[in-house]
Design a protein around this nucleic acid. Structure first.
Length: 546
RNA sequence: UGGGGUGUAGCCAAGAGGUAAGGCAACAGACUUUGACUCUGUCAUCUCAGUGGUUCGAUCCCACUCACCCCAGCCA
């Protein structure tokens, strides 16, 4: 795997060299309220890989300081995604496990006169905060005595007040040019049960207060987050200092990853699912990790994509095709390469005996002999791809079949096109060819060079399959598609469903298998559910001409 | 029009005063049991958003300008 290298790594190296830290510890802190997507994967890969570079460790910490919308089902899903990606956290922690310790630091702040209980309503608080260009003004409750604040805060915890009635605020500066410093709320009252704490708490710490303390409790050295938190770093450092944290963590920000034509926000992803536009969070079209997994992406491909695509403080937009490129690269030597014909053109080998079927040896992957061989049938009647034939050779570059020319059928023989049967519109519907037995694959024949190599499927043994993005592979055994009359173009108005002929060997797919179709796309079988999914994705194709 | 962040090729991304890495894509060619893969070559030179300045020398330092992103939740 490619070694990671980016500006955060440089920071870590210097911190180590110059003695600011003597170890590296990172954390991945998802809020358990959504499924992870490719954007999270970038954080995960960087958090883990960067720590790994220096022999450090990474914690998984669920940032569950807001019980609204958070749930245990997401916790399991996130752990599962991490496992799938191949990462094992040094520890699995929950922000809520620190509630008591966090509370103690809040008391400390109150005692130092740096926090106060405020009675302002949410509307008033907005009003008092000022605007981007005008300073805010002090709350009338800002100067309560330490004793009163202590008492009130205890009462807040004890459940004496209703939701929204009071907050605990840091006493910083209502005129600060950075709005985050205008007495940010540290605790709000929420009479909502917590997925782990139950009804133990009715006050919950805000992210800005909880996160730096959590990082400190865990001895995190480098706390990475996205650029939008840049404005919060000043507050992060303020809490670490004023709460007298023994360990001082530091926050670093990087730009978010965007992908062309890909929706990444939780809100829109939820709309896609709830609106029924997709079949669920694991729909192969979703950028979620569970979706990409069903689509056939491998953890290796995702990691390489993330590492190669780099990291900076720019919010970048990467081409969606890159992900497919890395999948192709990853599977190049791992996947077997069966043959399938999507737009069949009938071929009759005139000099081949009627009724004879011979089985030829075919490498599962020409570039990797370790994947073994399989037997593929060859006979008088074949299908080739319509795109692989043109009557008159258009130029020297044309390396496929045309009238009077000879090509190699992959794993089989040279064939030469002798004549064409056309329909009333002049389109070819059947080719008559001859084959040369001397050119059998593996025979070492080198007498002459063919005009390219194309793939094929033996017509009488091939299975008609429905390549469907959303459903398990469907074998179609209906009579009308079995015979040789199946020549119509089935796929013209279909973008998510494609029919085609697949070689026999593909009927024995096993869960976890990946297949790479020559020039067509990918087939993967779901590793866990034993569901088969044929992923026909033209952007995955090995040829740009598709 | 307050504060913060960012501008390097079609897309990512290094370089942090000494004469613009690398990857993807693209293009050209070689090879090939598919044109994929592999290999070779090309691809920023009135060049690093722009304009001035400092300097022997500036993408890098300074000043100003422009563009884009983030911030006014008791969300994270």
């Amino acid at each position: 795997m490619t070694e990671i290298n980016n500006f955060i790594k440089t920071i870590m190296e210097k911190d180590l060299e110059e003695g600011r830290v003597d170890y590296i510890r990172t954390r991945f802190p998802p809020e358990p309220n959504a499924y992870l997507h490719i954007g999270h994967a970038r954080a995960i890969v960087n958090d883990f890989e960067l720590a790994k570079c220096f022999g450090g460790t990474t914690n998984l910490r669920f940032d569950d300081t807001n019980p609204v919308n958070e749930g245990a089902q997401y916790v399991d899903a996130i752990i599962d995604d991490l496992k799938w990606l191949g990462y094992t956290p040094a520890n699995v922690f929950f922000g809520s496990d620190y509630f008591e310790k966090t509370y103690e630091r809040a008391i400390l702040l109150i005692k130092k006169g740096l926090a106060y209980v405020d009675d302002l309503t949410p509307e008033q608080m907005t009003e008092y905060r000022g605007t981007l260009t005008e300073p805010g003004k002090n709350s009338p409750w800002r100067d309560r005595s330490i004793e009163e604040n202590l008492k009130l805060f205890e009462e807040m915890r004890a459940g004496k007040y209703a939701n929204g009635e009071k907050t605990l605020r840091a006493k910083i500066d209502m005129a600060h040019p950075n709005i985050n410093m205008r007495d940010p709320v540290m605790y709000r009252i929420l009479h909502v049960p917590h997925h782990r704490q139950g009804n133990k708490w009715c006050i919950y710490p805000m992210y800005d207060f909880a996160h730096p303390l959590q990082d400190s409790f865990e001895g995190i050295t480098h706390s990475m987050c996205s650029l939008e938190y840049d404005n919060h770093r000043i507050l992060y450092d303020w809490f670490v200092e004023k709460c007298e944290m023994e360990h001082v963590p530091h926050q670093y920000e990087w730009g978010r990853l965007n992908i062309t034509n890909t929706i990444m926000s939780k809100r829109y992803l939820r709309q896609l699912v709830e609106g029924g536009y997709v079949t669920g969070y694991d729909d192969p079209r979703m950028p979620t990790l569970v979706g990409l997994r069903r689509k056939g992406l491998t953890p290796e491909a995702i990691k390489e994509f993330i590492i190669y695509t780099g990291l900076s403080r720019i919010n970048s937009t990467t081409d969606a095709n890159d992900l497919d490129n890395f999948l192709r690269e990853d599977q190049k030597l791992k996947a077997t390469r069966p043959m399938a014909i999507l737009n069949p053109l009938k071929v009759v080998i005139d000099n081949y005996p009627e009724g004879k079927i011979e089985y030829l040896d075919a490498d599962n992957n020409m570039e990797n002999p370790e994947l073994g061989k399989r037997k593929i049938p060859f006979g008088k009647y074949l299908y080739i791809e319509q795109d692989d034939f043109i009557e008159v050779k258009p130029n020297r570059k044309w390396k496929r079949l045309c009238l009077g020319e000879e090509v190699r059928l992959m794993h089989a023989y040279f064939i030469k096109c002798e004549s064409i049967v056309k329909d009333e519109n002049g389109n070819p519907i059947e080719l008559h060819c001859t084959y040369d037995p001397a050119t059998k694959s593996g025979s070492g024949f080198e007498g002459r060079k063919p005009n390219g190599t194309i793939h094929f499927v033996e017509a009488t043994t091939a299975k008609k399959a429905q390549f469907n993005l959303f459903e398990p592979l469907v074998w179609d055994e209906t009579e009308e598609t079995k015979g040789l009359d199946f020549i119509e173009r089935l796929n013209k108005n279909s973008w998510n469903k494609v029919y085609g002929f697949v070689e026999e060997s593909l009927q024995d797919t096993k869960p976890g298998d990946h297949y790479q179709f020559i020039r067509q796309g990918y087939y993967c079988t779901d590793k866990d559910s034993t569901k088969d999914n044929l992923i026909f994705n033209r952007t995955c194709s090995l040829k740009s001409s598709f």
